[in-house]
Design a protein around this nucleic acid. Structure first.
Lengths: 260, 260
DNA sequence: GATCGTTGTTTCTTTAAGTATATAACGCTA
DNA sequence: TAGCGTTATATACTTAAAGAAACAACGATC
């Protein structure tokens, strides 16, 4: 039993973009004309022309520019907006497929329920969501310990319950996300301090936002990952934190959740 | 700009269940025969019969039972398995629609990126995910305070960053989920103790799982909601917790995340 | 045994969608 | 001005799917 689902982008309740049209647009991008693209896909010129016409009519901004006559008889090119749209569609499609896979995993068609599935389609408030790979996995009777390796090779340990490990279907080597609230992050200026069983990630401060009582400090870890911490104004002043300072972000492993 | 997506359940790479077939099955459930159902949907008898035949052939267990001849000329009934399948499909469809809505909300087609969307299709390890409604909402320069009212009328306060409030698009009255780790829940036996700014939820213990060092305590809050707490074995013994005991679960509002 | 309303099957018709083809218009090039 | 390859448009053809209608088989019921 599997689930299948196609994604269609509508404008004005009319289909604007779908799998086949994306392929056509890409062929146009590649060949520079509708007629050649139609042969490449393959589809009839009429179908291709109608698709393109429909796309351009429905879209607020032109997706392709068509020229009749001229050098080489004319031609058709995809506008920058069109290229963006194609890219966008792929992103959406990827997210969608991810969701469908998850949905299918969780659905047990024989028993007839969605099992442990609570909600898949949910965004959570936690600022810190770091993508990684499960490096090691230990479970006791109640607790479990998961170590993730981030793209930046940094490691993050999460203490979660054994039930959670099972529900998420965690396995060594699989992709997962480390999640924790910015309020459970401590900021230290000493780089080489070591505390028991804590996750410590170092990097330069790239932004400081000051509020009435709290201050949000954002530091870059590795290439393009950031960690946000919310600390009290007093603590921030005491440490004399400035943008550019190198700091260490500390997170208790019991504050870290895991997402898949 | 909107997104549209249909959901199809496949078996053996053949379409087994889709929107139209579900409607047909429901009409059969209601009218007791293929011919009447076909009229009700509406579709031709042939199409209806072929759909039903295909469904029954593809499914491992029979979805409908057909009888030719007999009282009233025969008839067709949906099996209990078939009914389960229909129910299942609705659940999947609901989750799917929820996802599509979220995807659409986050996609900005003019700017051409997925904005703040990190990952929508994610399950998280947190055991405690309580559905509620946003009762009140206050944001400062950095921090924000969200009060959720659960179905059981209990209230849960979450301290999250202002950015998170904005990213999630939180508004008073909208549905949201309070999320917190079971390890950030404290268990108390006194019902009427009051601690500063803490969330306290009371109910009877329905399950205790003992491990090497930790104990998982699950209490029922309201009708069908539960809260899981992981505490040390020592603490559990000291409180002499037993299944059936009425306890209060305490959660710091800074440990609570919000999901939408 | 006749009746009834259904399932199961066949055949023909209709319809929609796509394909193929032909051709005008176009604007640069030589 | 003729040639080129394209867009743009119309027309005819092909094919696949859906629908309509007709009818045999069936088995309880009267």
């Amino acid at each position: 039993m599997e689930l299948q689902s196609s994604l269609t982008l509508l404008s004005d309740n009319q289909p604007l973009l779908l799998e086949k049209r994306i392929r056509l647009l890409e062929a146009i991008e590649q060949h520079g004309s509708i007629s050649k693209a139609a042969k490449a896909v393959p589809m009839s010129y009429k179908a291709a022309w109608e698709a393109i016409d429909s796309i351009n009519n429905l879209s607020s901004k032109p997706v392709v520019e068509r020229e009749t006559g001229g050098k080489g008889g004319g031609g058709t090119v995809v506008t920058p907006y069109g290229k963006k749209l194609i890219e966008m569609f792929y992103l959406l499609k990827k997210q969608h497929q991810l969701f469908i896979d998850k949905l299918c995993e969780n659905a047990d068609f024989d028993s007839g329920d969605l099992g442990n599935l609570k909600r898949i389609a949910m965004q959570i408030s936690a600022r810190n969501q770091l993508q990684g790979r499960v490096l090691s996995l230990h479970t006791g009777e109640v607790s479990g310990r998961v170590v993730l390796e981030l793209k930046s090779k940094e490691r993050i340990t999460a203490n979660i319950t054994k039930d959670a490990v099972e529900n998420l279907g965690l396995r060594e080597g699989m992709d997962a996300v480390a999640i924790f609230k910015s309020s459970s992050v401590l900021v230290a200026k000493e780089e080489n301090l070591r505390l028991s069983a804590q996750n410590s990630l170092s990097g330069p401060i790239i932004q400081i936002t000051t509020g009435e009582v709290n201050v949000e400090v954002i530091a870059r870890i590795g290439q393009d990952e950031t960690i946000a911490a919310v600390i009290t104004k007093g603590a921030c002043e005491e440490l004399d934190l400035q943008v550019g300072n190198r700091v260490t972000m500390l997170v208790k492993s019991s504050s870290v959740m895991v997402g898949v």
